[in-house]
Design a protein around this nucleic acid. Structure first.
Lengths: 224, 224
DNA sequence: ATCAAATCCTGACACTGTTAAGATAACGTC
DNA sequence: GACGTTATCTTAACAGTGTCAGGATTTGAT
């Protein structure tokens, strides 16, 4: 399906070649597909290797671990997620001048992505990559994907302290992330009409009053 | 440690007995401990069986699956979680008369529980029990544990429609759950001072303006 | 005392992640 | 062109996992 096998120079026949050509990309693509259908738990290295038409030990020449492969999938996910967020942010900005609208648009994008790619979202924020700087690429991709949200919240509070912006951002992120997580597991379905996802997300994000972050004594992360 | 082996009638000696006495409880306790230290992924049925001094196939007389055992652990977790939430709710109520204080107290309890039992919390809300009525005990325990939060939110909006209460509850739950999830993964640590957890949680929950749920056109889940 | 049910054990199967050792292709250098 | 180096892939194997079948042992009721 998505196997670009035409890189090898000795590409005379279409028969099985010893070298795959671009195994790494094929493995990541296959793994992502498996994760999206069967979840991170249902992924087996041997399975993706066989699906890529390759032996069981071949992946170990491109990934140190099973976790390393999953990390690559997660990085891919964060990249797609960041693009989606930026797209929603840009669309909301051109619509109106109220910065709060931009934040709401981001909330919609956040939840939409989580619902469209549930297992991928679970992998990205799941307990697979927790303890460590073992996969700095993942943490870097994660932080990069958060940039649009931070910018949108900052735009709502132009005259606030940095600490106050942080507090507002924490609340906004918490609200949106919680909504996405709960929606994904279907735990808000009996409270909201998730068929109209846009309206549901706006109903929730409208209840956030970021301006209350100003003047809070707890907004200071560290006292000098 | 927690093995009540004194139930068997033929308890003359303390040597290894053929019947354990209360294997099920011992397995759940052992599994919970493993989950709290090594995470749900690091749990093996054979391991807990060996730790309980019992053969590898013995657990299958008390649990249909590995997931079944994990479900029992999750039910235990939801029970403890619900008690903790009720405790925080009661303490907040006696303090002051402002119902919003009660909600904030619940938020603190929510996050505190998640941080004190990270792996258990991850198991409870993780992707292990998603698709299904396969474990109705889990969903029931989960819904029961949510009662204090629903009550607290409802107390803040005494004159609201049922639909409006639902919308407010969805937002409140999203905020608190997202805060717990993000805190647990350490992703808010660079925005807030998590050492003073109480203050951080209040700083976030204060930014929720539940009253904006009133009159929203999206609050109606289903039109008759 | 007898018999069924509950509980537990041994043994096995298929599957997993992972490593070691050898085979094959591609690439730069003469 | 021939040569050696390196990256890539394969086969074979090890330890560990979840799960089941069949047999042993205990409990409890009759």
């Amino acid at each position: 399906m998505t196997k670009p096998k035409q890189i090898s120079r000795s590409g005379k026949k279409d028969g099985p070649r010893y070298h795959h050509g671009d195994l790494r990309a094929a493995l990541v693509a296959e793994a992502r597909q498996v994760v999206e259908t069967a979840g991170p738990e249902g992924l087996s290295l041997r399975g993706v290797a066989k699906a890529a038409g390759v032996s069981q030990a071949a992946p170990y020449h491109h990934f140190k671990d099973k976790q390393d492969l999953l990390a690559a999938v997660a990085v891919d996910g964060f990249r797609a997620f960041g693009q989606e967020m930026a797209r929603h942010a840009a669309r909301a900005e051109t619509d109106k001048d109220d910065p709060m609208t931009g934040f709401q648009g981001l909330g919609v994008g956040y939840v939409t992505f989580a619902l469209k790619n549930p297992a991928l979202f679970a992998l990205m924020h799941g307990p697979t990559f927790q303890g460590d700087g073992e996969h700095p690429a993942v943490t870097q991709a994660r932080q990069a994907s958060a940039a649009p949200l931070i910018a949108a919240v900052g735009a709502c509070l132009p005259n606030a302290t940095e600490h106050e912006k942080m507090a507002a951002c924490a609340a906004a992120w918490s609200l949106v992330h919680g909504m996405a997580t709960l929606c994904q597991d279907g735990r808000l379905s009996w409270m909201l009409d998730l068929e109209d996802l846009d309206a549901a997300a706006r109903s929730i994000t409208r209840q956030l009053d970021i301006t209350r972050a100003i003047g809070s004594p707890a907004t200071a992360a560290k006292r000098p």
